[in-house]
Design a protein around this nucleic acid. Structure first.
Length: 645
DNA sequence: TCAATCCGTATC
DNA sequence: ATACGGATTGAC
C-alpha cells in the first residue's frame, strides 16, 4: 500500500474480481479503495484464503499486468525497510521506477517470462586473460572459477594500483552470467558507469546488459528496467539506483569503491548500497564482490568476521605496480623550502612534476574542492589560523574584515601567527582553477587542464600536461601519470567528520592508482606529515592495514560498524515522546541531545551489533505509535545516519 | 433521555 | 489521511 504511515506498513487482503483473474499477478501495480480513498498498491501474492475476519473489498483496478516487483526484490525491500526502521512503500519507491505505459506497450511481455534469455554471445570472454589478471590476487582465480561454476563466493577486493578495474568487474559479471546467473554491479557515479559499461560491452557484447542511472529519462529508465525484469538481460550495472534492479537467478552483486558517500541513498529510509547489496546476496544466496583501491572499516569487518574472503595482491606484486610515494613535511617545512616554485608547491613536488613532463607524461594535481574548509592560514608560513580562546578554526567571512572562530564565534581582531608572527591571513583552499593558474606560471609552456565539478575529463592522452583535479574527478591517463601531486591535504584531513582520515586515504589512493609504477618512473608526492597513518598506508600501499587499524579504533570508540547507531531528529518534545514510547533493547545508549537546525534537536542511539535489528524494530514501532495518534510534530528516524559529527 | 461532539482506533 | 464507534458532555 503506497501510504507513508508507519502503522500501515503491512499487507492488506483484497478480493480479486473475476475480470482481473488473469491480470492480477503477484508483483503487479494495483489500485484499491483504502479507508475510503483510492490508493496505489502492490500485489504481493495471490492466496486462496484470507486470515482477515472482517469484510474484504475488491481490487479497484490492476494498473498493469506487468509483474514489476519480483519476489526476490519484494523480500529484499522488506528486509531493507526493517534494517532501516523504514516503510516498505518507501523502499519500493526506490526499487521500482515509475511506470511508462507507452514503453510497456512497445515491447509486449512474453506471456511466460520464463523464456530463457538469449544464448551467450559467441564472442564469450576468453577465460585465459581474465584468469591471468585475477591471478594477480591471492584467491583471485579461485573466485572467478567459483562464479563460473555457479557458486556464491564472497570477497573484499583490494585493487592494485593501475588496475583496470572496469575490466576486472566485467570479467566477474561475465563469469556469473556464463553460469546462467544474473548479476548486479553498482558504481558511485556516471563516469565510473561509463567505463564499466564500455568494459562490459567488450566482454559480453552490447546486448548482454543494461546500465541504469539517475540521468536517464523516465521512458529509457523504465525500458531498461523492463529488459532486466523480463529476463532479456542477465547483467545490470548502474549507480545506486541499480541496487534493487531485478535480475533472474541472482548470482553476483558487485560494489565498486564502497567508501564513496554517493552510495548513500538520500531518500528515506536512506539505505546504503553496500548494505542493500549484502542483504540481497544473503537472501538470494549470491556471490559478493566489494572492491576498491581503498578499504572501508565496513569491508574490513566482513573480512575479520570471515563472512568474505580477501582478494589482495601479494606484496611483491604491489611493489612492482605501485608508484614511488614521497611525503613532504608539513606546512612549516614547506614554508622554509627555498626551491619551492610557488607558495604551495614544495621543490620535491616541482621536481617530480618536471621530470615527468620531460619524460613526456602528464602530471595529475589533486586539490581539495573549494568550499570544503572555510578556514584560513598564515599567508607566509601556512600555519592554520586557530582561535586564541578555543583553538577552533578561524574563518574569513565577507560580512566583516576580521576573522572569526567557527566554533565559538569570537572575532580575532588582532591576529598574529604563532609560527612566524605574521599578521596576514588567506583562505587556505584555493580550488582547482586558482591552482591551475599558479601551476601555469610555474611550468611555462605546459598545457594546464582542469577537471572538476563543472567539467569532468574522462581520459587524458600520454603527453606532457598538468591536470588539476578535485577528488573524484581524476581523469584516467593513457599509460598512467608520470607524477601525482596531492596538495593542501590538511584541508581533507582536518574535516569535521569521523571518517575524515579514511576518506582522505581513499581519495589519495584513487589518484595515486592512476600513476605509473615506480619502475616506469611514476611518483606520488603527498604534502603531509609522513608519520600519520593515512600517509603510512599510502607509502606502503596497504589499505588493508589501514582498514584494520580504523576498525580497531571504531571498536574502541563504539562507532559503526562496530556498533549500530541511529538518530532521532525533531522538536525536543517530539523526540522525548518518541523515545519514551520506544521499547528500546536493553543497554541502548542515548547520546545527546545536540541542537539541529530550525529549533530541532537530535538524539543518537547506540547498541551493539547483536541488538541492531531490535533497535530498528523498536524505533519503527515507536514511529508507528506516533503516526497512528496523528502526532503533530514529526520525528525523523535514521539508522546509520550519514553525519555522525 | 437524546443528540452533538470528542477521542481513539482501524483502515482489508 | 478518513471513517466509524463508543464515550462523554450538555441541554431539556
Amino acid at each position: 500500500m503506497d501510504v507513508p504511515l508507519a502503522h500501515l506498513d503491512r499487507p492488506f487482503d483484497y478480493l480479486v474480481p473475476a475480470d482481473f483473474a488473469e491480470s492480477a499477478v503477484a508483483g503487479a501495480r494495483v489500485r484499491v479503495r483504502f479507508a475510503g480513498q483510492l490508493v496505489d498498491g502492490w500485489l504481493l501474492e495471490r492466496v486462496a484464503e484470507s486470515g482477515h475476519d472482517g469484510r474484504l473489498m475488491y481490487l479497484e483496478r490492476v494498473v498493469s499486468a506487468e509483474p514489476v516487483l519480483s519476489p526476490e526484490v519484494a523480500r529484499l525491500a522488506r528486509a531493507v525497510a526493517d534494517r532501516y526502521a523504514g516503510n516498505l512503500a518507501d523502499v519500493l519507491r526506490l526499487a521500482v521506477p515509475p511506470r511508462h505505459a507507452r514503453v510497456e506497450k512497445a515491447t509486449p511481455a512474453p506471456p511466460e517470462p520464463a523464456t530463457p534469455p538469449s544464448p551467450e554471445p559467441a564472442a564469450s570472454p576468453s577465460p585465459e586473460p581474465a584468469a591471468q589478471a585475477w591471478g594477480m590476487y591471492q584467491a583471485g582465480s579461485a573466485f572467478l572459477r567459483a562464479l563460473a561454476d555457479g557458486r556464491a563466493p564472497r570477497a573484499v577486493w583490494s585493487a592494485l594500483p593501475g588496475e583496470d578495474w572496469p575490466t576486472r568487474v566485467a570479467e566477474a559479471l561475465a563469469s556469473a552470467a556464463a553460469a546462467g546467473r544474473g548479476a548486479v554491479a553498482v558504481v558511485p557515479d556516471a563516469r565510473d558507469l561509463d567505463r564499466l559499461d564500455a568494459a562490459l560491452t567488450a566482454a559480453l557484447g552490447p546486448d548482454g546488459h543494461v546500465a541504469l542511472s539517475a540521468a536517464l529519462g523516465p521512458a529509457e529508465r523504465y525500458r531498461r528496467f523492463l529488459a532486466a525484469r523480463r529476463g532479456l538481460v542477465r547483467v545490470v550495472i548502474g549507480t545506486r539506483a541499480a541496487m534493487f534492479a531485478p535480475v533472474d537467478r541472482l548470482g553476483l552483486v558487485v560494489l565498486w569503491d564502497d567508501g564513496d558517500d554517493l552510495h548513500h541513498e538520500p531518500r528515506a529510509p536512506y539505505p546504503h548500497a553496500r548494505e542493500v547489496l549484502l542483504t540481497r546476496a544473503r537472501l538470494a544466496d549470491a556471490g559478493v564482490l566489494v572492491g576498491g583501491y581503498a578499504r572501508t572499516a565496513e569491508a574490513q569487518l566482513l573480512v575479520e568476521t570471515g563472512w568474505a574472503h580477501e582478494l589482495a595482491p601479494a606484496r611483491a606484486t604491489v611493489r612492482a605496480r605501485a608508484p614511488e610515494v614521497l611525503p613532504v613535511g608539513d606546512d612549516t617545512q614547506l614554508a622554509r623550502d627555498q626551491g619551492a616554485a610557488t607558495a604551495r608547491l614544495p621543490s620535491v613536488a616541482w621536481q617530480a612534476a618536471r621530470s615527468a613532463l620531460r619524460a613526456g607524461a602528464p602530471v595529475l594535481v589533486q586539490v581539495p574542492r573549494r568550499g570544503y574548509l572555510p578556514s584560513v592560514s598564515c599567508i607566509q608560513c601556512h600555519t592554520p589560523a586557530r582561535c586564541a580562546h578555543c583553538a577552533g578554526p578561524l574563518e574569513l567571512s565577507s560580512a566583516r574584515s576580521a576573522p572569526g572562530c567557527r566554533w565559538c564565534g569570537r572575532v580575532a581582531a588582532a591576529y598574529s601567527c604563532p609560527g612566524c608572527g605574521g599578521r596576514r591571513l588567506r583562505a587556505a583552499v584555493f580550488g582547482a582553477r586558482r591552482t591551475a593558474e599558479e601551476l601555469g606560471r610555474a611550468f611555462p609552456g605546459v598545457p594546464v587542464r582542469t577537471s572538476g565539478r563543472d567539467e569532468v575529463l574522462t581520459v587524458v592522452p600520454a603527453e606532457p600536461a598538468l591536470v588539476v583535479t578535485t577528488p573524484g574527478a581524476e581523469p584516467v591517463a593513457d599509460q598512467g601519470y608520470g607524477a601525482v601531486l596531492l596538495l593542501d591535504t590538511w584541508a581533507l584531513l582536518t574535516r569535521a567528520d569521523l571518517r575524515a582520515a579514511e576518506e582522505t586515504l581513499r581519495r589519495w589512493l584513487a589518484a595515486a592508482a592512476l600513476a605509473r609504477p615506480a619502475g616506469a618512473g611514476g611518483r606520488v608526492v603527498v604534502v603531509a606529515d609522513g608519520a600519520i597513518p593515512p600517509v603510512q598506508a599510502l607509502l606502503r600501499w596497504d589499505p588493508a592495514w589501514y582498514a584494520a587499524r580504523e576498525l580497531d579504533e571504531r571498536r574502541e570508540l563504539g562507532f559503526p560498524p562496530a556498533a549500530r547507531m541511529a538518530s532521532a531528529t525533531g522538536t525536543p518534545a517530539a523526540v522525548a515522546e518518541l523515545l519514551a514510547a520506544a521499547r528500546l533493547p536493553e543497554g541502548t545508549q542515548l547520546l545527546g541531545p545536540v541542537p539541529a537546525d530550525a529549533g530541532h534537536e537530535r538524539m543518537l542511539l547506540r547498541v551493539g551489533r547483536a541488538d541492531a535489528a531490535a533497535l530498528a524494530a523498536a524505533l519503527h514501532e515507536a514511529v508507528a505509535v506516533r503516526t497512528a495518534r496523528k502526532a503533530a510534530e514529526p520525528v525523523r528516524v535514521q539508522v546509520d545516519p550519514a553525519q555522525l559529527i
